[in-house]
Amino acid sequence: MTPFDDEEGDPWPDEPEEFDPDSLGPETPDVEPDPEEAMAAAADVDEDLFRAFWGAAVFLNVAIAALALGALLIYFRGDWPRGGQALLVGTVAALFTARFYFSYRPDDAEDESTIDSEADR
């Protein structure tokens, strides 16, 4: 017997019905990802842009993790050798991120096509 039941075991009459959270909002459709469609979308991307994006994304994640870990090791444990190595790895990864980011020039492809069309005249 719960405190909300009366002597016969019936719930109180003013007790609200149990709330159904699925009743809020629209129905969400079940979506299965199509790997062939994803590969076709990736094939439409310029190779230089693809390499620059993924290179920068990976190295940026490494840089953030290594810099944070190095700072935590130095501050909380006073472990300068390992913390310093982690900070060095993070700094090098950040420099590689900057290299990937600044090496990609979207206007290079446009300039080559413009130069080729002007040379044909």
Rank of each mutant, 00 (worst) to 15 (best):
E47V: 13
D46T: 00
V92T: 09
I74F: 07
E17H: 01
E18G: 05
E47S: 14
P11E: 15
A98Q: 03
D107C: 03
R77S: 11
A94F: 14
A41H: 02
F50T: 14
D79N: 12
L95H: 02
A56L: 10
P33V: 00
P13V: 12
E112G: 00
T97N: 12
V31S: 00
L72E: 15
D20W: 09
D79M: 07
P35M: 04
P26W: 01
T91P: 03
L72N: 11
T28C: 03
T28P: 09
P33I: 01
P81M: 04
V62C: 09
S23G: 06
F53P: 00
A41R: 06
P35G: 01
I64A: 09
T114W: 14
E15A: 07
D30K: 02
L69I: 01
P21N: 12
E37F: 10
G70E: 08
E47P: 15
W54E: 05
R99T: 15
P21L: 07
P26R: 00
L72D: 10
A86S: 11
V45P: 04
P21G: 09
F19V: 10
A94V: 04
G25W: 05
P81S: 07
L60Y: 14
R99D: 05
D48Q: 09
E27K: 12
G25T: 01
F102R: 14
F102L: 15
E36G: 15
P33C: 02
W12R: 05
Y104P: 04
N61A: 14
P29H: 06
W80L: 06
F53K: 08
A42G: 05
T114I: 11
F96H: 06
F76E: 12
D111S: 04
D111A: 13
G78A: 06
E32S: 10
A42M: 15
P81L: 11
A56T: 06
A38S: 11
S103M: 10
D30N: 05
A57V: 08
A57R: 13
P35K: 00
A93N: 04
D79A: 13
Y75I: 07
A43H: 06
R51P: 00
T28I: 05
E32G: 00
P81H: 12
I64E: 03
P21E: 14
D14Y: 01
L24G: 02
V58M: 11
S103P: 01
T97H: 14
R77V: 03
